[in-house]
């Protein structure tokens, strides 16, 4: 860990201390995530949608390029849906990790 990283970790520790003291004095402040519920919902929705669109576009291109039957498109839309779910899972796991730090 170099000096800058150490300084960053120290500043984060200090921030946590200030937050803890602040909570003692004024009570618990709601978490940033809780206030951004709507933002989170839009993020998750667009992740799901993004997966479907990406799967659809890739499936369509493969189908056009190799001149295959439309079931390739179906398979890729299905895979895209799973990819969207995977993205949501990764995103939520990231938030959970951030909370537990």
């Amino acid at each position: 860990m170099d000096d800058r990283e150490q300084a960053f970790v120290k500043s984060k520790e200090l921030e946590a201390k200030i937050k803890a003291l602040h909570e003692q004095v004024v009570g618990k402040v709601p978490d940033r995530l809780d206030r951004q519920g709507a933002g989170l919902a839009v993020t998750i929705m667009s992740d799901l949608l993004g997966g479907l669109i990406a799967g659809g576009v890739i499936g369509f291109l493969i189908q056009r390029f190799f001149d295959t039957k439309p079931f390739i498109l179906g398979i890729f839309i299905f895979l895209g849906g799973i990819a969207g779910l995977l993205n949501v899972y990764k995103y939520v796991r990231r938030i959970e990790n951030g909370k537990n730090k």
Partner: peptide
């Protein structure tokens, strides 16, 4: 691979 390629789509759509 689709999950990686879908990121620009979800960013754009949002």
């Amino acid at each position: 691979i689709i999950s990686f390629l879908s990121k620009p789509f979800s960013l754009t759509v949002r």
